[in-house]
Write a protein that binds this DNA or RNA. Structure first.
Lengths: 195, 195
DNA sequence: CTCGTTCCTGGCCGAATGGCTAGGCTGGCG
DNA sequence: CGCCAGCCTAGCCATTCGGCCAGGAACGAG
C-alpha cells in the first residue's frame, strides 16, 4: 500500500496509524502520483487535495480520503475505487484497503445514498404542485440553464428582450423561485433540463 | 458473522470457506433472518434467494450475495450495506465483511457504475485549465449554487456584500464564465458542488 | 525586513435582472 | 359570438449584478 498526500504530516500520520494493522504493508509515501511505479503497490491511499484528481496513469485501485461531498463525487468520477471521509477510523481505513485490494468498491455510508433507488422522502415533498411549463418556456429554460442572459435568449429565439423577461418571469413563478440561478438548480433537480 | 441461505449446502460451503479467514468468526447459520438475535452477530452474510428481501428487523449490516443485477438493486433498495456477486472469492468476502463491520459500504465494481456521474466525453474536454478555488471561494460557491444573492451570501458568511461580490467575481474568473448562473452549471459539471 | 498571497472592505458605474401594469395576436371551445 | 390560454411586445422602476480601481490586515517565504 502506497500513501499519497500533499501534506507530509498527513502522510506520516496515516502511515503510523496503519503500521500496526495486520496484513497491510505501507510500502511508501509520496506527495502525488508521480513515480508510483517504483513501489509496485497493490493499493493506493490518497488524501484528496483541492486540486482535480488525476488517476489516469495510476493502475492500482485508489482509496480517496475526502473532506466534503463535492470532492467525493469528483474522485468517484475520476475513477477512485473507494471514497471515505477524512476522519475515518484507522480500522475502517484498513478494512477498506483490504477490500480494495480484492477488487471491491468501498464507500462511506453517506456516499452510497444515490445507489438506493429510494423510498423517496415519504412525508416531506409538499413541493411539486409544479404547474407544467409550456413548450416555449422549456426552450427558454434550456437556454437559461446554459447561462444565457435575457438579451442572448431573445437573440437566439428571435424575439424581443421583453419577451425573454416575460418567459423567464413565468418560469420563476411556476418553479416557485425568485432568481434565474435558483430556477436552473430547481429545474435540474426536477429533471427538466440536463446539465 | 452469521450466515443466511435457504440452501443448507450453500451455508455449509460458505462457512467452510470463511472458517480459515483470520479475524472472522462464523457464529452460526440460518435459513433466514428469523431468530438472528440469539447469535448477536456483528455482520450478516446473506445469500440472496429469489424472494423479496426483508431487512426491516435486522440490525447488523448485511452483505448480500446476488446472482444478477435485478437482485442487486432490490437488495440495495432494501437496505443491504454490501452487495457482491455470488461467485466472489472467499478472500473478497472476508475483506468485504470486515469493511461492513466497520460501518462501510462495499460493492462489486459493476454495481458501482451508477455512482460515476459521467464517463466524460473522451475527446472534447480542452477546457479545464481550472485554477483551484480557495476554501473561502468554495464556501461562496456552495451558497451560489443554492441560489443565494450576494447580499444573502454576505449575511450567511458574515462579511460585507462587497466581499461577497469580490469572491463571486473571483469564482467567475477562475471558472472562466461571466454570470453566476453559468458558474453554478459549470461547477456542477465539474463536481465542485452537488445540486 | 520586504514581498507575495489570501482574505476582507470600500466606492463608483453601467448593465442586467425581476416585479409591475398594460396591451395585441392567435387558435380552441362553448 | 365571447372567453380564455398561450404567446409576443412594451414601458417603468427598484434592486441586483458584474467590472474596475484602491486599500488594509494577516501570514509565510525569501
Amino acid at each position: 500500500m502506497l500513501i499519497f498526500s500533499e501534506d507530509p504530516w498527513a502522510r506520516a500520520g496515516l502511515a503510523a496509524a496503519l503500521r500496526g494493522e495486520a496484513g497491510l504493508e505501507v510500502v511508501g509515501q509520496l506527495g502525488g502520483p508521480d513515480g508510483w511505479q517504483a513501489y509496485a503497490p497493490d493499493v493506493v491511499l490518497w488524501e484528496a487535495g483541492e486540486s482535480r484528481p488525476d488517476l489516469e496513469a495510476l493502475e492500482p485501485p485508489v482509496l480517496a480520503l475526502v473532506g466534503h461531498e463535492a470532492q467525493a463525487t469528483a474522485w468517484l468520477a475520476a475513477g477512485a475505487r473507494g471514497v471515505l471521509w477524512r476522519d475515518s477510523e484507522p480500522e475502517a481505513l484498513s478494512a477498506a484497503l483490504r477490500a480494495l485490494a480484492q477488487g471491491l468498491v468501498v464507500l462511506a455510508p453517506d456516499l452510497a445514498e444515490p445507489l438506493r433507488p429510494g423510498p423517496r422522502d415519504p412525508e416531506g415533498e409538499a413541493e411539486p404542485p409544479l404547474e407544467p411549463l409550456t413548450e416555449r418556456e422549456l426552450e427558454v429554460l434550456r437556454l437559461l440553464a446554459a447561462g444565457l442572459s435575457n438579451k442572448a435568449i431573445a437573440r437566439r429565439l428571435e424575439f424581443s428582450e421583453h419577451t425573454a423577461k416575460f418567459h423567464v418571469a413565468s418560469i420563476l413563478g411556476k418553479l416557485g423561485v425568485q432568481s434565474r440561478t435558483e430556477a436552473v438548480v430547481r429545474a435540474a433537480r426536477l429533471g427538466l433540463v440536463m446539465l
